[in-house]
Design a protein around this nucleic acid. Sequence first.
DNA 1: AGAATCCATGCAATCGCTTTCATTATTCCT
DNA 2: AGGAATAATGAAAGCGATTGCATGGATTCT
Lengths: 329, 329
Amino acid sequence: MSKPTIYSIAQRCGVSAATVSRAFNRPELVSAPVREQIMAAARELGYQPSSAARGLVTGRAEMIGLVVPDITNPFFPLLVRAIQRTAERMGSSVMLIDAEESAAAEVRHVAQLRSRVDGVIVASPRSSSAALREAARGLPCVLLNRPLRELSSVICDNTSALFDAGEHLHKHGHRSFALLAGPSASWAAARRSQAIRRWARGRGVELIELGPFRATFKGGRQAGAALLATDATAAFAFDDLTACGVLAELAGRGVSVPGERSVVGCDDVLLARTVTPSLTTVTAPMDDLGATAVQVLTRQIETPGGPAEHVALPGVFVARDSTGPRSTS
Amino acid sequence: MSKPTIYSIAQRCGVSAATVSRAFNRPELVSAPVREQIMAAARELGYQPSSAARGLVTGRAEMIGLVVPDITNPFFPLLVRAIQRTAERMGSSVMLIDAEESAAAEVRHVAQLRSRVDGVIVASPRSSSAALREAARGLPCVLLNRPLRELSSVICDNTSALFDAGEHLHKHGHRSFALLAGPSASWAAARRSQAIRRWARGRGVELIELGPFRATFKGGRQAGAALLATDATAAFAFDDLTACGVLAELAGRGVSVPGERSVVGCDDVLLARTVTPSLTTVTAPMDDLGATAVQVLTRQIETPGGPAEHVALPGVFVARDSTGPRSTS
DNA sequence: AGAATCCATGCAATCGCTTTCATTATTCCT
DNA sequence: AGGAATAATGAAAGCGATTGCATGGATTCT
């Protein structure tokens, strides 16, 4: 007794396979009694449509690929979840690919995905624009947090939230700021630095630029050490992981936060709430980012050759415990 | 100019589609010149075999499902990565499903996966044994960190590593211990508690049982508070997340670690190295766990109806900075 | 040289489903 | 009531690959 197919069901119900197929896909085309009989038989037999067979004829895999550079980066799990949830609602599954931080693996995987998915979402890619363009040629594709004219993209724009962060610190009496820059190759890092510079210039406050530092906990400790060598009372870290490193370094040296220095992070990863003191940071609207990416991708799939779309979602500033009034010492 | 198929290539090379197919799958059956011509044409046309078509005839999806209860739990990303890497080496892709902590979603997803994958790996499932058995009926399945007689399983056994942890603390002069128990429904929690109890009894030391606590940062803070109400100088936390909560609570109350109290965690998630002080904990051999799970699953797929396999991999104790000599006060 | 092998290749069936077109049976309109 | 429109179903042609069997040519053996 092999796997049930539409034919098993058809035979059992004395109808043709076409009718069974319709009962599932276009129920309104099948009379109620027959439809119910078919459904009952299907349930009874434990029938599950073969997605391979369906995919072969429809040309749709009902599956999207998601390429992340490093699944262990706490930034991604929430994104993965949001994307998966939205995809499921649209009837698709998600194939997750962890490129393990290798740009080469990224494009290799995108190329391999081609035949198994309807489209791909590539998050914060490491790869060069050219390689990416080439890999995505003819494959619906949405870039996350990395704009590229020819390909659709969804990005999180922290500019205004960083302004808010600056204002928040300014209101607390800070007048001298440090910018702990992230990796120079990172688009996000460049953009954040730029936003902070603009704000500082507009505000007419002192901005000490330090770095670039690696976007790791270690990089953060170095940044913390560098920070202590200045007399900036408030610092913008590139992201939360860096900020945590800064916190650890300051704690290690007996510098109190926010008593003596204030620190703001970016991204609001889980860690940000967990660490002591909890991090003042910028929340990325993960759910929206993921959902939007899937929606844009769906449009790309349905309109092959359609125009690239570009969506920017704003981050939101959240004040927690790592920022406070400037010490009056 | 539609997607290239084996027929496009066949036509272009003046051979039959069968030969093209063989050139890819059984190259030794095709003469060298023809094979090379085919490969060249394939490259030129950008041919990618349709996995749907292949899957239809071979009955293999070359894909395995991976169901995790909560992708945001730092325990999983490393596991996901290990599984993905091994699967790739075996020619399969991974479909990730985040059950978002819902037992119902877990079995629902396993059921839906049925038609799209060759088998599933279910990590630390929340669902009841019966539901799980039913959902996996006829579908090759490997359970992770949850043994169940009828289904294959791969688990991490921390018993001996926890003994080592106990000895480590004992050597540092600790004589009174606290067990901060994890969720009572968790198999892993029960097992860990049991191991620690056995060790304490064998050693003849005092063991104060606290909890159960939720396996979250908050749960850890509560555990920390409870710990301070006792005079245990060393504590076993259920896992690293809990341990971090304990650390935070102690820090908040000005209790120094490891000066006044020692804390050991379990799992060695990324956080463990990041937090200050870095956590003494038990490392789960993630890579092995993932690789073994995939291998066992592969065997299940190749031998349907074969016997369930059960593999236990030992965790390894690692001493870091959250444990030290008992304070002599 | 003729028979026996072997190698490379082609033919054609098949996997399970969707979908167009044709075919009835039914209902509606004038 | 006769013909048109409508609804429910079936027959059959693919979708793109794999694979068992058949075939014909080259090679080898005796």
